[in-house]
Write a protein that binds this DNA or RNA. Structure first.
Lengths: 151, 151
DNA sequence: TTGACAAATAAGAGTTACTCCTAAATAGTA
DNA sequence: TACTATTTAGGAGTAACTCTTATTTGTCAA
């Protein structure tokens, strides 16, 4: 087992999968093997994969899956709150399965996205009037600047 | 004068321009009329224009400016901290001249970006260890969810 | 001032990352 | 097991950059 890829154990992965299939049914979405495969690959990694990267992974299981399906599915995951698009994504969108609360720092020069976790940022309070008007699916603190390697 | 466009008065606009030319020189960038025109158009509006939208505006002054120049310039502004790309930008990047501190809420369904200002979010503290490793150019709180019109 | 030169621009071709379309397949339901 | 609305695969199409090249222009030094 590759340490970089296996940041989630198979028990937790199965739990996530059960939760995900439940969420799909709740939202009236069909539980297709492709959808599950894409979700599982996304949740397995913490390297903010692009649709292209995920497509390659999933093709090891579903050789005939199309990039369009991966793209469509990832947007769907974003809409139902099962994943999200990393803030400030530039050229190719980067996706995140949201394993645990964390924030992102993006280098404006090398475009690297660096995860970090800062407890106070995990607990920011959404203003009352926002909660009343909107359904807030996610909140995050996003930093940008120049990273240690670039400066 | 159109109220929608003139959210900044000409004195403040000139102040911003002086600051901007200074920043360019400091960063070793040439102060070209195109660069200034693009910056001024961006700062004049609060509607998160795309490169395309800004290009049209600037063409009223520089009929021959190319879209490529506008794109390149906007990315440069982002790198030196004179402007930024709105988080979660989808298809076409949206830019913000950062007139005053504010946050963004994005609807995952209609893709609308809604500005809001919440005082505690303007004053979040960047962790010490981040400040030491990186140059933090900007920090923001970003919310996503479903807006009042879509839910 | 005036050259010299590195940086910036315009124009257009090229590329990337989606996004749409259609026919075929399939999950959910009766 | 049959039906129907979703979903998928494959391929064509499109939008938004991004690169290349020739030309122009700030900036700096003499």
């Amino acid at each position: 087992m590759n340490a970089q890829e296996s940041i989630i154990n198979s028990v937790d992965l199965d739990k996530k999968t059960v939760w995900f299939t439940g969420l799909c049914r709740e939202k009236g979405l069909k539980v297709t093997p492709q959808r599950i495969a894409i979700y599982r690959e996304l949740v397995k990694t913490n390297e903010h994969p692009s649709a292209e990267m995920l497509c390659e992974k999933v093709r090891q299981v579903f050789p005939s899956i199309s990039l369009d399906t991966v793209n469509r599915t990832l947007l769907t995951l974003n809409e139902i709150g099962a994943a999200f698009i990393v803030e400030g994504s530039g050229d190719a969108k980067r996706f995140d399965g949201g394993l645990d609360e964390h924030q992102h720092f993006k280098c404006v020069e090398c475009k690297r996205v660096i995860d970090f976790s800062h407890e106070p940022f995990n607990n920011i309070e959404v203003p009352q009037e926002m909660e009343e008007m909107f359904v807030v699916l996610r909140k995050s603190v996003y930093l940008e600047g120049i990273c240690d390697l670039c400066r």
